[in-house]
Amino acid sequence: MDSQSQPFFVRGPSAGARLLFFMAISLVLMVIDARFNYLQRVRETLTAAVYPLQRLAQMPGQALERVNGFFVTQQKLQQDNLAIRQQLLEQSQQLQRMKALEAEAATLRRILGAKEQVPGTSMLVELLHVDRNPFLRKIVVNKGTQDGVLAGQAVIDADGVVGQVTLSSPFSSEVTLITEKGQPMPVMVQRTGLRAVLFGSGRPNALELPFVPVNADIENGDVLVTSGIDGVYPPGLPVATVSNIERNAAYVFAKITCSPAAGVDRNKFYLVLQVPRIDDTAKSSRPSLAIEKGEKIKQVVVPTPSGANPNP
């Protein structure tokens, strides 16, 4: 111990003064982080700095997985092979139908004089970890700006929309799930074409559809798809299924609960849709806060005429 070399009396401000100082800094930081976007760069830099440690922390689990993979029996492999071949068959059939439908849709669209949809590229990402804050519904995935994953891009899995990239550092990015409390998303009821805005509820498997009139034509089991008018999510992706409707004549709006179509909390791999950036509505890193401002929600819901397709 080298306590001899230390000054006996601690110099500098008193403990209380330090506490107040750091409390003030924390509060200022929180306000800046919540209200403005100045700290985005700092956060990205620090996230990149912590990245090696994060990778290190992932290693034991990955090693375990590799060892497990080594001891898979041949029988299991054969079973898996069979199942996968069957699945392939079924899906190729579906794909053929899909191609026909796509061709048909393209013709129709041309007839309507509508522009072609942008066939955006997509990038397979892997879940790194789930954010530890139990109040937030966010995950961190293993691709970042180096691979072209940018804030604002939509994230999907095989069954539907999962969320949106809200922060990207060089080697990893943070995805806000659609279940995050107050995360808005413009949707459309597939059966009727009714447009609405879907909100996350903060609970893992529930979404809310708050502003639909009591007498609207919507039923249990209706499928909600993205309407595409926000310029973030391409239209037509399944988002959720209506699971419960409470109509109370005393209120203007029905209380509608939906369950997400995608395995929002269950997957390990996701697809990031790299649709060319259309406008900056998606830039806001904290959608839950953006809602509180009236003008921003308008931007999300109402399509901007110029925002349809800048570079088809």
Partner: peptide
Amino acid sequence: DIADGSLFGLNALAYTV
């Protein structure tokens, strides 16, 4: 805070107190 994805300074405040 970085690891949690929470607001900057949130855990910092709690830790300091």
